[in-house]
Design a binder for these strands. Sequence first.
DNA 1: ATGATAGGTGACTAAAAGGTCACATGTCAA
DNA 2: TTGACATGTGACCTTTTAGTCACCTATCAT
Lengths: 108, 108
Amino acid sequence: MVRMDDDLVFKALADPTRRLLLDRLFERDGRTLTELESQLEMTRFGVMKHLKVLAQAGLVVSRKQGREKLHFLNPVPIRQIHDRWIDKYREREVSALLDLKTSLEDTA
Amino acid sequence: MVRMDDDLVFKALADPTRRLLLDRLFERDGRTLTELESQLEMTRFGVMKHLKVLAQAGLVVSRKQGREKLHFLNPVPIRQIHDRWIDKYREREVSALLDLKTSLEDTA
DNA sequence: ATGATAGGTGACTAAAAGGTCACATGTCAA
DNA sequence: TTGACATGTGACCTTTTAGTCACCTATCAT
């Protein structure tokens, strides 16, 4: 299997601000730069740089609309990370283990 | 859901050498530092540092045996990354899309 | 015991990444 | 058309990280 830009994806995910941006887009897609900036303790320029990194990694796709630019989350690279180190045989047990852990935390 | 060390995990995955170490351990567990070092263009100290980062992230677990130390891959944090940005509803389509992509690449 | 082997620590240097700013372009609304 | 708004670029500084080395401890085999 070809893994063309895996380095860009992992580097992109390494920064907490960028992960937070992905979280915001996971909640709701199609946000603008200004909207994302308003929720971060950072200047517009910092957020813009982060969005660029995410876009080059393929984790975020953008579309221009008038003077605004809307940003969308692309989950495909995330799934590829998963498939790299979790084979289909072990997927069941790992997933089950995490479900159990989550339910324990919820009841606690 | 509590995500205690997610930053350590993502930072650990950001380096290509560390991902290569995970690949080697994914192929076969229980390797020693010396064995891992012999396959990398790097001094023992560099590899040791990388293993330490992976261990602190919980991606690698180690066990001492005599004067050797055996290293094992722990896939659980990987699965947690997956679950953060891929909900169970979208998992089917993303997974199917990637399976299709893989089969196309194989026949090409 | 002693030489060889496996692993560990702290200090150091060079490269990469995060963040800000001055400045600039394109778009909207009155 | 003109002022406000949304986004974009390049240079710059600071912090973090990757990698190496001198030096050290623990274990094995003879």
